[in-house]
Amino acid sequence: MKNRTNVRWLTQLSLLVAILLVMNYTPLLGYVQFGPISASLLTVPVAIGAMTMGPLAGAILGGVFGATSFIQMVEGKSQMGTQLFSVNPFGAFVVSFVARVLMGLCAALIFNALRKAMPKKEKLCCVIGAICTPVLNTVFFMGFLVLFFYNCDYVQNVAQTLDATNVFMFIVYLVGVQAVIEWLICGVVASAVTVPVRKYLKLN
């Protein structure tokens, strides 16, 4: 029984990793571009994995997401990412990779806490968990971005272009539209998939 469970877990994880990679290398599926940054839809499979498979899967899927993002920085496929990598490669790694690992891990932990607090409200827990994933992505990404890069010339130029006079306004102006899109899409799609999957796997 334990071996069967492990095989099923690995199979589910492999499927979600494959979906992540397909979305990443199919721009119309994985990203919606808004100026210097893009709204990522890769939070959807991360949210599904975090809520159906637990913290380890959430961290791994977040790591896959982060690895593809960092590779795009290195390859020069992301306008902002390329600039950040040229300024501070380590900071760019934290912003792109570490932030996404924490996103997947924390999304799963939050969902588990919600399930314990509201054991009879499965659908609501899935909706909240699905929305939390892109919200955490935004929080960790922008938090590390400000921590490592806010004072660099490129980010200051972006802030001036956006007419952002402080850190808070910079964050709001930079991620406002794309963040809302990420939250809505992930909240709808991830919860719609997670509820029947958890029911099928008898996790509720």
Rank of each mutant, 00 (worst) to 15 (best):
N166M: 09
A130C: 09
L114A: 03
I131M: 15
V167W: 00
N157L: 06
A107P: 02
P134T: 09
T138I: 12
I128K: 02
K116L: 06
Y154L: 10
D153R: 01
M142S: 12
K120N: 15
Q178M: 13
V135D: 00
F141N: 03
P134L: 08
L114D: 03
I110K: 04
A107F: 01
E122L: 10
L145D: 02
P134Q: 08
E122D: 12
G143F: 02
V167K: 10
I128L: 06
A159F: 02
C125Q: 03
A113K: 13
D163M: 13
A108N: 05
N112M: 12
F144C: 12
K116H: 12
F149M: 14
N151G: 15
P119I: 05
L109W: 10
F149R: 09
M142P: 01
A108E: 04
L114E: 03
F141W: 04
A164Q: 01
V172L: 13
Q156G: 07
V175H: 07
F170M: 14
V158G: 11
P134G: 05
D163V: 08
V139L: 14
A108F: 02
F168N: 08
L124C: 01
F149E: 08
V175F: 07
F168Q: 10
F170Q: 11
I110L: 14
A113W: 11
A164I: 00
L136H: 04
D163Y: 07
Y154Q: 11
L174D: 09
F140A: 04
K120W: 00
T165V: 14
M142D: 08
C152R: 08
